[in-house]
Design a protein around this nucleic acid. Structure first.
Lengths: 206, 206
DNA sequence: AGTGTGTTTAATAGGGCTATTAAACAAGTC
DNA sequence: GACTTGTTTAATAGCCCTATTAAACACACT
């Protein structure tokens, strides 16, 4: 599990797992230390405060998520190709990190302080502004060519984000309440990817 | 704010607000008591434990949510009419209670114990089984008449739920990060209701 | 006036949490 | 061997939390 064996990184990895699983409020530095195999004082020695340790992990994850979004604009020849490619990239990224959406959402919703992190660290970043401009251009081009219904680009993004993110948000419920095996969960994810792609493309026909 | 002025109910109302806003872990009985205007011992006098107080509120809210779903099957003459009616009912209910989806999701995802509540209290309930059977029949009827693409009923529900619920999950982010007024938020909600309805109907055309 | 019942508070036990501090430890350098 | 520097632990201060207990309070009934 531990890739780097220095205690400093080990603590961060363990902390990330625990924050992902339980959220900030329900995770204690004592627990982090215990699972990392050191004393709780060491956690504070390396990261000073729990909030500090959390912020590093949180911002790193948000950054990673934004990079995925940036990478999803690779194929802009045809609109259908783009939709298919983008949803594919999102699903691959989320499958590798299924807890990410819940983690980010939880902290952003339940703590206004965390939203300040975002504003201060990512509003300046041109990545997602460029993304939005490029996406906007693509949509309007297709609409003028009559190949796309006249829907606001923002609504298209909402539709994709809703359905993609929601799939992973409810994954623990799906698995637990419907008593699904890991394999069945994987099939479910693959199936949803196809269906969402189909729904979005069909839903945007003029 | 307080409809009934007995302290017992007052505590429950305050507790509900705080649980909705902060979640279980970040809300203390001390804080509940303080906002209700009594001592913390009184909270325990009426509800014995914090978990107990929480469970009452949680199950009540889940019950209310399931009732909304049950009510949404009123108009089954045309499929389009049903979609429009159902999404309308969901949006009305959620607008009156915008924190509900996040509250239920958070507790269900972060605490397996809460999922046991559901299994024990609602698996027996025939409400949503009846709902699913009736919905399934409606979908298959429309598909055989060639008016609907051959999509699994479950995927249709996922699509509706994703987009409806997601709208309210990200509402605090939308309002805060994009600096929207309450009025703009209301417009956003109304706009999303229309768009989701359109997308779902269009996305299910054969 | 006295009794009983339900409500509310003050006080507290007992525990966990964050953060700090001083001291022990390890390992390299002069 | 003494010194430095970075790592780790033990101990603890100070806080807040949950839950309990005993006592005060209010009010109806007789």
């Amino acid at each position: 599990m531990t890739t780097n064996d220095t205690m400093e990184l080990r603590i961060r990895e363990v902390a990330q797992q625990l924050f992902f699983r339980q959220g900030y409020a329900s995770t204690s530095t004592t627990q982090i230390a215990h699972e990392a195999g050191c004393t709780q004082a060491l956690v504070h020695y390396y990261y000073r405060t729990k909030e500090n340790l959390f912020r590093q992990i949180f911002l790193e994850q948000v950054e990673a998520a934004l990079n995925v979004i940036g990478r999803s604009l690779c194929d802009t020849d045809s609109f259908e190709g783009f939709i298919e490619g983008a949803i594919g990239i999102y699903f691959d990224a989320l499958k590798a990190n299924p807890r990410l959406p819940y983690f980010v959402l939880e902290e952003l919703v339940s703590n206004p302080e965390r939203r300040r992190y975002l504003r201060e660290n990512f509003v300046k970043k041109p990545t997602y502004i460029m993304f939005y401009m490029q996406f906007d251009a693509l949509v309007r081009r297709e609409q003028q060519a009559g190949r796309l219904a006249h829907v606001e680009p923002f609504d298209i993004l909402m539709s994709i984000a809703s359905q993609t993110v929601f799939t992973f948000l409810v994954l623990p419920l799906y698995q637990d309440l419907l008593a699904r095996t890991d394999e069945q969960v994987n099939e479910f994810i693959a199936h949803r990817k196809q269906e969402i792609t189909r729904m979005v493309i069909q839903g945007l026909k003029p």
